[in-house]
Nucleic acid binder design. Structure first.
Lengths: 159, 159
DNA sequence: CGGACTTGGTTGGTAATACGAACAGTTGTG
DNA sequence: CACAACTGTTCGTATTACCAACCAAGTCCG
């Protein structure tokens, strides 16, 4: 009874284009603050509080070594700092500096405002529907990979 | 009584995450076919027919020089070819080769299938609604920048 | 305790991505 | 023809991203 065989062909197309648009917005906003899109993403991810490298590799879908470089450059620019984890002497948490926090918030707000502006014509109900639909897709993906983005919140350490 | 002032704060968050997910799917599929995400994107864009460099820079939001490199590498791999434009001797159209077409279709199908799978739980009506909502957002952005992606179809020569 | 194994992060080497500035060839215009 | 506008390339540089190899710290197990 499910009609998933021949849905709207434009649906995935729309998703892909939207992703592209978001990417573009991220790029523009990042540039306004003299950041690369990746750095902006990193900063926004750290707004919720310090995060460990391993957690970041999962959130950003990067290899460890790639992340090392990204954090290195961000650290060299004084945007983030590595702080040793008290419970695990090999691990380190990445933390926003003062300037990093300022920039991160500005960038995050910029992206949010841009997207909100673009979606201004969208009635609130539709907006909620889209949000929930996306939530479903994300949940489906999460259940498949068994990994989540771990939204801004306390890092749930298994122990 | 428009309620655009304090909408769902999770809306833009959802958009951003979705973009990330699509990006990831693109990356996975690309890798399955020994492509970089950018190459996959290029190939998918060419499925509709040959496209000029300038048009491609707009579609991919790249500088001319960046695109030259991307096309260079794709050409070196035998995926695309530069064909001279008969009407304009400085311009060239980028065209898929035989293998390029095969790969492009496979990659496009792969991405589509993945996304469809993830959205399988979404009822068709919601899907259409989401697609149209996204369409609205894209249209808004288009009207702001005055430029469109020029969906798969005949290249409209601006004249 | 002590070695095997795992985990967390860095280093080194390489390819791809992306930008800006400068350049060469065409086109169109006056 | 002179000149501006346009199309794509080349060059130099910074960033991104991967893999393999590595070191250091924690964990497991005998």
């Amino acid at each position: 009874m499910v009609t998933t065989n021949e849905p709207v062909p434009g649906f995935t197309e729309a998703l892909v284009r939207l992703a592209h648009l978001v990417q573009q917005v991220y790029g523009e906003v990042a540039r306004e603050h003299d950041l690369t899109p990746q750095q902006a993403q990193l900063l926004c991810l750290l707004i919720g509080g310090p995060v460990g490298m391993t957690e970041l590799t999962r959130a950003l879908h990067l290899e460890k070594s790639s992340l090392t470089g990204l954090v290195d450059r961000a650290e060299r620019r004084g945007l983030v700092a590595r702080v040793r984890d008290s419970r695990d002497r090999r691990a380190c948490l990445i933390e926003l500096t003062g300037e990093g926090t300022r920039t991160a918030v500005l960038a995050h707000d910029g992206v949010t405002r841009q997207l909100e502006t673009l979606a201004a014509d969208l009635p609130a109900e539709h907006r909620e529907l889209v949000a929930s639909a996306i939530g479903g897709i994300l949940a489906e993906h999460t259940s498949r990979t068994g990994r989540a983005w771990s939204a801004p919140g306390p890092h749930r350490q298994g122990g």
